[in-house]
């Protein structure tokens, strides 16, 4: 007769399955950091200007990624999954911070002037400083498109990560190019270079 007080013994087969799925999750986590670790750091810098809060955000992204990988079932590409988790974590983080710091964001269409990029970043390039100064002012969705563009993701991947329509991604990328041209080369008229919205189709970086 079975004693009801006796703890249920785990079935060895089920235990092996749990261990195997844990091992798969661990290897996926390591793979995510191998492939996207630097991109996640850049993403954290782009979402959080404060150095201490940035490290917290990066750790929050790592934890969210670890938790999410239990549910990863290949319905989208691994890259899309990692970026979605990272962007959604970052957007939640900065929305909380915005409420605390009472900051306002603007859209790409309103981003005319860049704030003083004196945010303590240790990156040396002026170009990069200007990019961060622009990104830190943007609304979450526009920020995500700009980061995806800079990371070299194609329009289809950007649309999949953000949920924006392909048309809207193309329009936003056109604005980004226009803004970047203005900021990086203020003496040239951007209209003369790239007057039409284009479908962003280059994919020059970032593993699939």
């Amino acid at each position: 007769m079975t004693n009801p007080a006796e703890p249920t013994r785990a079935v060895p087969g089920a235990e092996r399955l749990v261990k195997a799925s844990q091992a798969v999750r661990e290897s996926r986590f390591e793979e995510a950091l191998d492939l996207f670790g630097p991109a996640l750091e850049r993403l954290a810098r782009a979402w959080e200007a404060d150095a201490d809060a940035r490290l917290d955000l990066l750790q929050e992204i790592h934890i969210a990624l670890w938790r999410s990988l239990e549910a990863f079932d290949g319905r989208c590409s691994f890259r899309t999954w990692v970026y979605r988790v990272a962007h959604n974590t970052a957007a939640s983080h900065v929305t909380r911070q915005m409420r605390l710091r009472k900051r306002e964001w603007v859209g790409l269409e309103e981003l005319a002037e860049v704030a003083d990029p004196a945010d303590g970043l240790t990156v040396q390039s002026d170009q990069i400083k200007i990019l961060y100064a622009m990104i830190h002012q943007l609304k979450p969705l526009d920020r995500q498109v700009m980061l995806a563009y800079l990371e070299g993701l194609d329009a289809a991947s950007t649309a999949e990560i953000t949920g924006l329509s392909a048309r809207n991604v193309a329009t936003k990328i056109h604005r980004i190019k226009h803004l970047l041209a203005q900021q990086m080369n203020p003496h040239t008229t951007p209209e003369t270079r790239d007057p039409r919205p284009q479908t962003h189709s280059d994919s020059n970086g970032g593993p699939q």
């Binding site: 661990e26 986590f29 950091l33 670790g37 630097p38 991109a39 750091e41 850049r42 490290l55 990066l58 750790q59 790592h62 934890i63 670890w66 990156v123 390039s125 170009q127 990069i128 990019l131 563009y149 800079l150 990371e151 070299g152 190019k177 970047l180 041209a181 990086m184 080369n185 270079r193 790239d194 020059n204 970086g205």
Partner: peptide, 27 residues
């Protein structure tokens, strides 16, 4: 312009990172 764009993307992607990497135990 496309070469400028690529330069900018390259500058963005090649900026130095600190290599922050949490182990599973740390997570």
């Amino acid at each position: 312009p496309s070469s400028e764009e690529n330069n900018m993307k390259q500058a963005w992607q090649s900026q130095p990172t600190e290599g922050v990497r949490m182990s599973i135990a740390e997570v």
